[in-house]
């Protein structure tokens, strides 16, 4: 069993970059019990055996769905959204006034609360964005999470965490015991399934990237690689948001904290790169 769990940890690291240390192997086993039962398998060892053989992408998807953490809430951590509202969006509106286009990527969108929060923020500034094309792309490695995000249906508990009541009234409608996001807001977000360890350059260039609470589950080499590739899809004057417990310090030379926007990072300028090289 121990070697099976080690093999599963290696497979998860290889496929989605998830770093699972040996002390958490027992937790993996517990977490996968529902997947094992739903697949009609006798135990986790058999699941690992099936996955190792390959040829069952649906089983791999369900395993990934079970392993990724989709705990999230609307306007999580607040500060990055406040920075967008007060500083970043006005600045980008000024910088992009010729093309009148802004692209935002929610790179680990889980069940959709983050991209919908971004869409609500843009909606709040709809007068300033009149005549603009604001695209919000949202992606996650979990097929189940992307499907839930696309559906935009949330429990009473979920809509009361982080979401101010006026925004609940403005953007949601009752759907039985749950709440469903209105079509006009859903239409602002394009959902895709994407694995951050794969190439994502095809998504195009973005002015703002939210990549929060995902790198923390990866080892340093993966984080470094993803941050380096994120720097290539982020506009020179764009902004990167990481989770409250995540940082670029000691991992990436591509970014530096944005001095006037708590919780956000910017690509290093040639001047700051020269200073770093000389220090």
């Amino acid at each position: 069993m121990r070697s099976d769990l080690a093999a599963l940890a290696a497979l998860l690291s290889d496929r989605i970059g998830l770093a699972v240390d040996e002390g958490k192997h027992q937790a993996i086993e517990m977490r996968l019990q529902p997947t094992v039962a739903a697949a009609g398998l006798p135990n986790v060892s058999e699941l690992v055996h099936r996955l190792s053989k390959g040829g069952d992408p649906a089983l791999l998807d369900r395993t990934i769905d079970a392993m990724v953490t989709c705990e999230t809430l609307f306007f999580r951590d607040r500060k990055p959204f406040e920075a967008l509202r007060a500083t970043v969006l006005p600045r980008l509106r000024e910088a992009r006034r010729a093309e009148r286009r802004i692209r935002i990527w929610s790179a680990a969108c889980a069940t959709g609360q983050e991209p919908y929060s971004l869409a609500m923020l843009i909606d709040e500034q709809q007068r300033e964005f009149a005549g603009w094309r604001v695209e919000i792309v949202a992606s996650d490695v979990s097929a189940a999470a992307v499907a839930a995000a696309r559906e935009g249906r949330y429990s009473q508990f979920e809509v009361q965490r982080g979401l101010p009541t006026p925004l609940l009234l403005r953007h949601f409608q009752r759907d039985g015991e749950a709440w469903r996001i209105n079509d006009h807001l859903r239409a602002h977000v394009e959902f895709r399934r994407a694995n951050l360890i794969d190439e994502f350059g095809r998504f195009g260039r973005f002015d703002i990237v939210f990549c929060r609470n995902v790198l923390m589950y990866m080892d340093v080499e993966r984080r470094r690689d993803i941050l380096q590739r994120l720097s290539r899809v982020l506009a020179d004057d764009g902004y990167l948001a990481l989770g409250a417990a995540e940082t670029v310090v000691g991992i990436s030379d591509e970014f530096e904290p944005a001095p006037d926007c708590a919780g956000l990072f910017r690509r290093k300028t040639p001047a700051s790169l020269r200073m770093a090289a000389n220090s």
């Binding site: 809430l73 982080g162 009541t165």
Partner: peptide, 14 residues
Amino acid sequence: EYIMKPFDRHIVQS
């Protein structure tokens, strides 16, 4: 603000 019962600590704090 408005809380729909049942509530828990997370909702109250939020």
